[in-house]
Write a protein that binds this DNA or RNA. Structure first.
Lengths: 113, 113
DNA sequence: ATGTTACTTAGGAACATGTCTAAGTATGAA
DNA sequence: TTCATACTTAGACATGTTCCTAAGTAACAT
């Protein structure tokens, strides 16, 4: 069974902030500079930088310096670990329902005999 | 395009803590009492309660009182909003790649003529 | 060489989070 | 009724988070 993955802490926590989700949404459409990302976020630039730092720490984005501007990009495989964790739990849950169905079936068969 | 959903703040933030993920993992296998959930978490009961409170606030679990014990259960549809958000972003990203492919194709065609 | 642009760093205020201990309250058992 | 169990509430405390302003630094543009 899935053991403790610290990377998921960073990933899910990063996703827990609306500003950061908006940034990711923007980056899903393509690369953008820090100031492009900051535009429309009624927030000081250093605050946006903090969010970018968290997203990068969570491996959700990458960034590179091009001259004096920093270009940010979504990590292609960004969401996979989170999606995998979620579907693993769903799978366990489904399994549980199946076992419940089996149990009911067994009860009904026992009643018939 | 998906607007701001405060429920995702609670959901993803709740998922960002390892103790809470472990609790969810446990509940995916079936209901459990508070003390059953607390067992094996080297943590005082009130601390576990706090985690349960967050999970319930995020609609990831439900709980009911049975005598003096509280039974917690995973919400069946627990992960859907989070999964939907993640796949929506992936979809946008895939779309972007398609458009990039189109762009490259266009460049190559232009070069041929 | 100088000014402007685009970040970056530093430091701090306000509030949220994760944990604890100690002291309840409600139920069940004897 | 009295004791044990299973939470529950209250309060404290250290840390973490999210924002800010002010003061850098590096790369262009002129």
């Amino acid at each position: 069974m899935s053991k403790y993955e610290p990377s998921l802490d960073l990933c899910f926590s990063a996703l827990g902030d609306p500003t950061r989700r908006m940034i990711l949404q923007r980056l899903a459409r393509g690369e953008a500079s820090v100031s492009a990302l900051a535009a429309g976020h009624d927030m000081a630039l250093p605050s946006v930088m903090e969010h970018l730092k968290k997203l990068e720490a969570a491996n959700l984005i990458t960034s590179r310096k091009k001259g004096r501007t920093r270009i940010c990009a979504l990590s292609p495989e960004a969401f996979t670990p989170a999606q995998n964790w979620l579907s693993a739990q769903s799978a366990i849950w489904e399994g549980r329902l199946d076992r419940f169905d089996d149990y009911i079936t067994t009860l009904m068969q026992e009643k018939e005999t």
